[in-house]
Design a protein around this nucleic acid. Sequence first.
DNA 1: GCGACAG
DNA 2: ATCTTGTCGC
Length: 223
Amino acid sequence: MSLPISDLLYPKNLKQAREVQRYIRERLILDDEPPLKDTFVFGVVDVSANMYSPYAYAACTVFEYPSLKMLDWYGYSGKYVFPYIPTYLVFREGPLLYELLKDIAGDLDLIIFDGQGIIHPLRVGIATHMGFIFDTKTIGFAKKLLYGNVVDGKVIDPEDGMVLGYEVKLGKRGGPVYISPGYRISPERAVEIIKSMADGYKIPKVIRSAHIYANKLRKEGGL
DNA sequence: GCGACAG
DNA sequence: ATCTTGTCGC
């Protein structure tokens, strides 16, 4: 990464935050090179927090693909240093996720985030932003749509008609989820991988796992 | 100005 | 995101 972490994750104001997002947008990589092997290791991350507590708990569960067997899990807790503002989520959770992943990202072939990839007004959702920082393949898995129009299952960018991601219904239970590439992966490959993890639930257990562990940390861990 | 708005 | 048990339904 050319810019230091301090600039990529700790902007002093929203203007600087936008500048960082525009910087990353100009350097997006959305192809599948190098392609993932038949068998690879991936992580799922999520952050758990209490409404009015400044402390947050992040967890990363590690799995083997395609067996989907859990290999490990890691946790990290710290204080939020940025408020939650739509389109700026990475500046709130990113610092914690960076600390959580900095020592293990190199061992992960892919990382799945709870949030958007390029389904974002500047195409730099939290999955894309973190993928750029670690130069690792990432996928954004969101429960709600943040930006774009859904046409025949495809999330389209109203600016130029580009396919940003897909609206897919996994399991006949709940509503759809929104999948988009984060970094170094294509929209189609991202959806293909997520669909291969479907197990009948709206949120595949493999993806839910990180949320479970993050919550377990918050309830049991200190702080 | 108004409405929308990941976690 | 979180507060929360049981309960209605496939």
